[in-house]
């Protein structure tokens, strides 16, 4: 049976096939078996359209996140309007603002407390890299030094549309996930460890200063002066 690349979402279909999945993707998913494939599609479709973000604000970017949740930008159009205050009920963490060293253990702990499958959007320059406050002694130079990040949304602060785009990227990522096989995400594998060590306050810095399993300092691209 061939599937048209652009599937219609008319109500006559029992389960509307998700948009954004190419023929090849679906064919490869079919290889996993009929039962799991259909289940996988429904599962991913449902997940992607009912994301529950963690209600969580760090700094200025959080105000833009509130605007996204409000009537004008209306994140409810993407099914993600239910902000949960408890990490146990949330499946998306939007790190929206400067993460300081004093706040970092709490952020990692919240991330650990969220149940799998979970995703992380980094919103704004600060959370991605330290942003304008990069030279600060109390600023973590990017939350990706401690926890895995799925989508980076640049900006200072990112416009609400940019955050919505980030959310759509997450939705795309969810729809493309397989349940089995080598491409399965970490939380479907038995051997994977989904708990990230919480750093401790040290005398001068956090201990450890980054999580070596998640992040390694990149070798700088040093150009010769004559080049």
């Amino acid at each position: 049976m061939s599937i048209p690349a652009t599937t219609s979402t008319s109500s006559s279909l029992p389960t509307p096939p998700p948009a954004g999945i190419s023929v090849e993707d679906r064919e490869s998913m079919r290889k996993q078996g009929v039962l799991l494939t259909s289940f996988n599609e429904i599962y991913n479709w449902g997940r992607a359209n009912s994301i529950w973000p963690l209600q969580f604000g760090l700094a200025c970017c959080a105000i833009e996140m509130i605007c996204v949740a409000a009537a004008r930008f209306d994140i409810a159009r993407f099914g993600a309007e239910i902000f949960r205050a408890s990490p146990r009920q949330a499946d998306l963490m939007i790190v929206n603002g400067t993460v300081t060293k004093k706040m970092l253990p709490q952020v990692v702990r919240l991330w650990n407390q969220m149940g799998e499958p979970k995703f992380c959007i980094v919103m704004g320059a600060c959370a991605s890299s330290g942003g304008p406050f990069k030279q600060g002694y109390n600023v973590v130079k990017g939350i990706d030094r401690y926890i895995p990040v799925d989508v980076y949304v640049p900006g200072c602060p990112p416009r609400p549309e940019a955050l919505l785009n980030g959310l759509m990227e997450i939705q795309k990522k969810m729809r493309e996930e397989t349940l089995t096989g080598p491409n399965a995400p970490r939380y479907f594998r038995k051997d994977a460890d989904c708990v990230y060590p919480v750093p401790e306050y040290g005398g001068r810095d956090l201990v450890p200063p980054h999580n070596p399993k998640v992040w390694k300092p990149a070798a700088p691209i040093v150009r010769d002066a004559k080049a």
Partner: peptide, 14 residues
């Protein structure tokens, strides 16, 4: 306090 202490004053001096 201090969970959003991002060293505004120190950076201001540089």
């Amino acid at each position: 306090f201090g969970y959003l202490h991002r060293n505004h004053e120190k950076l201001g001096e540089t």
